[in-house]
């Protein structure tokens, strides 16, 4: 067993009849027991990557291993260990929630003796017990998503792939979906690999993030690393009186301070990491007897990181609209 849940090297995909590479040499390693987010503009290749990793389509070049199985040659074994929720929709809407879970548990070959208990557990986990006999086409978007996740988790997969798991849901429903995913991974130690249009979700729930653009991974790291890699943080201090030259010199000499600018009673200081630099800056100002009236810190956001690496400004609206239109057409 290697430490990686996903290990991808030089992966390329050209869909038949297309000339453009949907994936153009993807290299990616995802550690086990992590929640891993992949971000990227529309058409960057997130879905394509996920479909290759879940053995639905074959890559044109390169290698991909999931849970140490080769996705190309060990597909049948691998499929028993993975959960997957596609970005569109994966349950039948003209039957009940319970019936969906039953069909999926049969497809996975869960023994009859265990089936009922597992279905019951899934329904409780996803807070759907009350609605188990209702037709899915009476469900809200959030309930459908929770049912889909329930269907994917019923076999207790070691890794779960979620393609835009919360797209189109309201903030409350999104939060609930994530609560369930996080609690499942905590209990089971499963790895989660998800794509999203919502930066705040990647920021909040992912242990690690990769940014993909035009079929290539352009950056990878935890959220702080990505933000810091964009540029320096800015501390803006409001003082009672303008800073004199001597105090200014003293500030500049501080190890953490990269640059400094004054503007009347306002001082802007650039540092690598404000949480480390702030105390020494304040100490220095105290020692020069300068009174501080306000402190404000500007850090680069994940949106800034996205913009830097993806080369386009972060705009989720288009992609969300598109996927929503598809879901609405499906659910009716």
């Amino acid at each position: 067993m290697t430490e990686y849940a996903i290990d991808v090297a030089n992966l390329e995909k050209i869909y038949s009849g297309r000339s453009k590479k949907a994936l153009d040499g993807v290299n990616l390693k995802v550690e086990r027991n992590k929640i891993f987010a992949i971000l990227g503009p529309n058409g960057a290749g997130k879905t394509t990557l996920m479909r290759i990793l879940t053995t639905q389509i074959t890559p044109s070049k390169g290698t991909a291993r999931v849970l140490d199985f080769n996705v190309f040659s060990d597909g049948h074994k691998l499929r028993k260990e993975i959960g997957y929720v596609p970005q569109e929709m994966s349950v039948w809407t003209d039957i009940s929630a319970y019936e969906n879970l039953l069909i999926y548990s049969q497809i996975y070959g869960i023994a009859k003796a265990e089936r009922e208990a597992l279905i019951k557990e899934s329904l409780i986990r996803m807070e759907l017990t009350e609605y188990k006999d209702n037709l899915v086409n009476t469900f809200s978007g959030g309930m459908i998503r929770r049912l889909e996740i329930a269907c994917a988790l019923i076999v207790k997969p070691q890794i779960i792939f979620l393609d835009e798991p919360t797209i189109g849901l309201d903030p409350e429903a999104r939060k609930k979906v994530w609560e369930k995913i996080v609690s499942f991974t905590k209990e089971s130690g499963a790895t989660v690999f998800f794509s999203t249009h919502y930066m705040d979700e990647a920021d909040e729930y992912a242990n690690e993030i990769a940014i993909i653009n035009a079929g290539k991974i352009v950056s990878q790291g935890d959220s702080n690393h990505l933000k810091q890699s964009v540029g320096n943080q800015e501390i803006i201090l409001g003082l009672s009186v303008p800073l004199d030259d001597k105090s200014k010199q003293q500030l500049r000499k501080l190890e953490q301070v990269i640059d400094l600018k004054t503007n009347g009673v306002e001082v802007e200081v650039w540092v690598k990491d404000a949480s480390v630099a702030l105390s020494s800056i304040m100490n220095s100002l105290f020692s020069s007897k300068v009174k501080i009236e306000s402190v404000k810190i500007n850090k680069p956001t994940l949106e800034d990181a996205f913009e830097k690496y993806a080369g386009v400004s972060y705009d989720s609206t288009e992609g969300i609209k598109e996927v929503n239109a598809v879901r609405r057409r499906i659910i009716g």
Partner: peptide, 17 residues
């Protein structure tokens, strides 16, 4: 319809050949 919705994709990721 199942192709347009994600159901076929989902089925392909199950152990069912």
């Amino acid at each position: 319809w199942e192709r347009e919705s994600g159901i076929l994709k989902r089925l392909l990721s199950t152990p069912a050949p």
